[in-house]
Design a protein around this nucleic acid. Structure first.
Lengths: 200, 200
DNA sequence: ACGTGTCATGTTATAATATCACGTTCGGAC
DNA sequence: GTCCGAACGTGATATTATAACATGACACGT
């Protein structure tokens, strides 16, 4: 049948998700990083990473699983988890523990000089420490990665004192982002009127 | 029947788990804290808290569920989760996100002057911020709560800058405790950075 | 005593997240 | 080509968490 014939030709898959040029640029950078580490950013891993890059909020494993389904292809959870493990190991994404969800690491998001190793204050690849800090909005689930190196420095010195061999750390601050905080307090006990309740 | 008669008397349950005097003292303090907050540390919550206090490492919800089972009584998950929610809300335990498990808050563990509110540098009850920092040993799962208030202060100021309304934070450092680190490195005198490339 | 409200608990089912085990395929080294 | 290890497919299952609704226990006013 035509169908089989077609599949025999397009050996593995239909063109997967199409990403925007900006996303593709980020993916290409990720690819370069992997190559440099002697790892392969396969099509599948690339697709998962692209979806995480494009999402505005953290994405769960099963969300990803849904998104990569096609009429031809119904991947199972391990497919996604394997890709996520790879991306985590290579420092391309972070896991937000509080949400059981994933976000891209900022060093992929910010512009193209990305490859200069010493612009990464927070990603100390020397010591294999892939660590970051997040502000997580309880209401809209948005996540902001912050890079306050002093926090990490402090933690490191505490660990040294205790002879604790630090490998990584997660710092997650829960609360309300500026936008949501404004919404949730329409006319609270605050003495001042806070205007500017701008709708999103 | 005898059985019904007995139950009518011992209204709710058999003596649940028996705790050591030390644990009981901690539970009594927890009880006092609750009362002060207008909350009730019921028998059930007390039992769950006692089990968490007695455990040497973080305890999972389903571990607790197993432990509170008796021939008479086969509680379901919500029973445990409700107790845990209560204990979390009242600042008696912490959740370790990385392990999906629970540990007692140190202010219950350390001695009996407990009730002086201002010895709690780290539990800013004024602002309802119940936050702590943990060192988690990957190998033995032991967890140490540390109280470095400067970390929290730094985070708070970052949040202020970004107009982020901080409600709580989890800081979890992963690595190897002194004991396990010694075990895992039988004879590494190498000053060079050792390629620990694929441990986990 | 009687309803009534509230907090705590019981019970059944199911959702959401994550891993195991085992077989197949793919890509590169030789 | 042959071989090997990494990557992937697949089915089953483990682990963690919550929804939805019913019951029990107790205080309070009447």
């Amino acid at each position: 049948m035509d169908h089989d014939f077609c599949r025999a030709h397009c050996t593995a898959r239909m063109t997967p998700t199409e990403f925007s040029p900006a996303t593709r640029a980020q993916l290409d950078r990720a690819d370069a990083l992997c190559t440099e580490q002697g790892a392969r950013l396969t099509q599948q891993r690339r697709e998962i990473l692209g979806l995480i890059l494009d999402a505005k909020t953290p994405v769960g494993a099963y969300d990803l699983l849904e998104k990569i389904k096609t009429p031809d292809r119904r991947p199972a959870p391990p497919t996604v988890y394997r890709a996520l493990d790879f991306l985590l190991e290579h420092g391309l994404i972070h896991r937000i523990e509080r949400l059981s969800a994933f976000v891209p690491c900022t060093h992929l998001l910010h512009d193209a000089h990305a490859h200069n190793p010493d612009h990464c204050h927070n990603h100390d690849h020397e010591t294999c420490l892939h660590t970051a800090q997040f502000l997580i909005c309880k209401s809209c689930k948005s996540v902001t990665e912050i890079a306050e190196s002093s926090v990490l420095t402090t933690l490191r010195s505490i660990c040294r004192e205790q002879k604790f061999a630090m490998q990584s750390a997660s710092i997650e601050v829960i609360g309300l982002c500026a936008t949501c905080a404004a919404k949730e307090r329409p006319a609270s006990n605050a003495p001042r009127k806070q205007a500017t309740s701008s709708p999103s």
